[in-house]
Simulated scan of single mutants.
Amino acid sequence: MENSNAMKKSLRVLVVVAIAAAMLSAAGCNKLRARDQLNKGVQSYKNSKYEEAIDHFQQAVSLDPGLLNARLYLATAFAQQYIPGADTPDNNKMAEQAIDQYKEVLKRDPKNINSVKGIAYLYLQMKRFDDAKAYYRKATELDPNDPEPYYSVAVIDWTQSYQPRMEERAKLGLKPEEPLKDKKVCTALSAKNSTYIQDGITALNKA
């Protein structure tokens, strides 16, 4: 009886070991296949075959979700397909897919500055200015000596203060180059834009 129980235990151990070995082998194979897809994707990307590259990178990510280079390349390939200024569902989807992949990288590597700046740039091009500023500020936290994010914040602040001025000129029937003389409008704009202006000056001083 004791021998029988011992044999059963031994068999169970062998089965567990065999399953574990099979799983490790499969995982190892998937990682190799993922790297192969990554390499193929890089070649397609270099040849400007972005849709083909995206397919390879997606397969690489599917095979090995932790392969950050594949996610970065996938995000970059999506971003490459995005056309700034073209406000269409398909075009915006490209940007969103790129942002999603950059965010997946940040879940695994919160200090990946390329992902942070990639998201910031896409939000800027999509005119999601507050989101863009938030990520450019994250970039300044990761690398305080990089002047680019500070300049980008200042540009966004200038844009956010410029648009209301143009809107008020249009309401008053003024040309873009004509000065605003309505004191009430000027006071309202000054109050509305003072935060942007001060924030922009602060960013430039840090650049």
Rank of each mutant, 00 (worst) to 15 (best):
R12V: 09
R12S: 11
R12C: 03
V15K: 12
V16W: 00
V16T: 11
A18Q: 02
I19V: 12
A21N: 05
M23R: 05
A26D: 02
A26Q: 02
G28V: 04
G28F: 02
L32P: 00
L32M: 13
R33C: 10
A34E: 07
A34V: 07
D36Q: 14
K40V: 04
K40P: 00
G41W: 07
V42I: 12
K46R: 15
K46A: 11
Y50E: 01
Y50Q: 04
I54A: 09
I54P: 05
H56Q: 12
Q59H: 09
A60I: 01
L63M: 05
G66P: 02
L67R: 05
R71Q: 05
A77T: 01
Q81P: 00
Y82L: 02
I83R: 13
G85K: 09
A86G: 00
N91F: 07
Q97G: 00
A98F: 02
D100Q: 08
Y102M: 01
E104S: 10
L106C: 09
D109C: 08
D109Q: 10
I113V: 13
V116S: 09
K117L: 15
K117M: 14
A120V: 06
Q125R: 14
K127F: 03
D130P: 02
D130N: 10
A132P: 01
A134C: 02
Y135L: 07
Y136F: 15
A139N: 11
E141S: 14
D143K: 10
D143V: 05
N145F: 06
D146L: 04
D146F: 03
D146N: 14
D146P: 02
D146S: 08
P147D: 08
S152N: 15
A154K: 13
D157K: 09
W158S: 14
Y162S: 10
R165K: 14
R165V: 15
E167H: 04
E168I: 12
A170F: 08
G173E: 11
E177W: 14
E178F: 02
L180Y: 13
K184Y: 02
K184I: 09
V185N: 07
A188R: 14
A188W: 04
A191V: 12
K192M: 12
S194V: 15
Y196V: 06
Y196P: 04
Q198Y: 05
Q198D: 08
Q198A: 10
